[in-house]
Each structure stands twice: as C-alpha cells, then as structure tokens.
C-alpha cells in the first residue's frame, strides 16, 4: 500500500489565490481530518484531489480511479435510477456491487427508485455506500455526516472503522470533530490557502491537548 503525496497545489480564481501551495504526505493506513473554517477552500482542495477540477498546478500522486470521492452532493442527474448508479460505479471503478446492494438493503432505498425521489439524507446514504464499496486506495469524504440521522451516522462511523483496518487512506473534511475525533490518526488545518503540518492525534493527547484545542489554536 502506498503513501499519498500531495505537492504544492495552487489554485486561483482570477487574482484570488484560494490554495497557495498545499502539500501533504499521508502514510498508508492513515485516517486524516482536514479541518478549517467554511470557505477556506476545503472543498476546492477535495475537488482537485477527487478528479473534478483539473485546472491547478501541483502534483498529486494518486488520481483517477484510485480515488473515491464522496462530495456534498451526488453528481448525477436527478432522473437516474439507483441501479443505474450502481452500474456506473461497477463500470468505471473496481466496485463491489454485491456489498453495495447488501448495504442498501438495510436502508429504505429501493434500487428502482429515481434519485429525485430520495430525500437529502437518503441521497447521502447512497453516496456514502457507493464510494465506500469502491476498491480505491484513497477515500475522500467532504462533510459526510450532514443531513444524516443518528442511526446512519453510526453506520458511517462503523463502516469507516472497518475501512481503517486496511492500509488505505481516508481523508475527511469536516467541522464535526466530535464524531471523528477518536478515529483520526492525524489532523491538519487548512488556513490561508495552506495546510498545516500533519499532526498525530495521539501525540496531541499525550501532551494533554484535545483535537478541538489544537484546532482552536490553529485558527488564532
């Protein structure tokens, strides 16, 4: 299993530089929390890492189908059916369709339903399940818990714990530090267009600092 190296990513909208040299080296098996205030560019960064935005300078060591990206919203037209989505993932990625179908059985999402018939929460569930069943080296999650009830939040956390047992890499952009705090192996804060150093969470706690403390300090 390989590490994930991000080198000097720069992205500007017009004259405004949103990302000003983002670099990171994530070891295999890490569960990384990418923290930062709203509007600081977390989604911009994830769009770049997740193949959506290809107009940037910098290097990313793992791209294409090696990356599964759970965006805030499913990028499929509303009239598509759930089973078409599964077929799409099956066609373009290495995808465990059986597992996805099993996971969907535990939700109220029927395979023949169209996306527009699903509530925001159900769409998120589907989004998570699809990306979770992709056999990719990197899993990117942009605010995965919004709009979800307690039950499914628990389900996501449990699923990610299982994924964390493999040597893959998980990056989560989130504000909900509480839910993920004990899962993160590392955290980093995006501020002023740059990522702070990758910090081990247990090392922080050994110093008597919580992840929230660290986050708070980084924003000052």
């Amino acid at each position: 299993m390989r590490e994930y190296a991000i080198g000097n990513i720069e992205k500007a909208y017009g004259k405004k530089g949103v990302l000003r040299g983002v670099s990171l080296r994530v070891p295999a098996g890490s569960f990384v929390g990418v923290l930062g205030l709203n509007g600081t560019g977390k989604t911009t960064l994830f769009n770049i890492l997740g193949n959506m935005d290809r107009n940037f300078t910098g290097e990313v060591s793992l791209r294409g189908k090696e990356v599964a990206y759970m965006r805030t919203k499913l990028p499929f037209p509303e009239w598509r059916k759930v089973k078409d989505l599964l077929s799409f993932y099956e066609r373009f990625y290495t995808f465990d369709r059986k597992k996805a179908e099993r996971m969907l059985e535990n939700t109220s999402i029927r395979p023949t339903a169209r996306l527009r018939a699903l509530s925001a929460g159900m769409q998120r569930q589907l989004n998570f399940i699809c990306n979770f069943c992709v056999d990719a080296q990197v899993l990117l999650l942009d605010e995965p818990l919004t709009n979800l009830d307690l039950v499914f939040r628990g389900f996501i956390v449990e699923s990610l714990i299982e994924r964390a047992m493999e040597d893959r890499i998980i990056l989560v952009a989130t504000h909900e530090i509480k839910e993920f705090e004990n899962l993160f192996t590392h955290v980093t804060v995006l501020r002023d267009g740059r990522l702070g150093p990758l910090t081990e969470t247990e090392a922080l706690r050994a110093q008597g600092k919580s992840v929230e403390d660290f986050y708070g300090e980084s924003l000052l």
Binding site: G29, V157, I161, E162, N182, L183, F184, T185
Partner: peptide, 13 residues
Amino acid sequence: RDLAVQCRVNPNT
C-alpha cells in the same frame, strides 16, 4: 474490529 467499533475508535489504537 469489534472493540474498535464498540469504543468508536481507530482500530490501529
């Protein structure tokens, strides 16, 4: 895996 899920922590811990 089971203890990790029970405690809601990273299994590496």
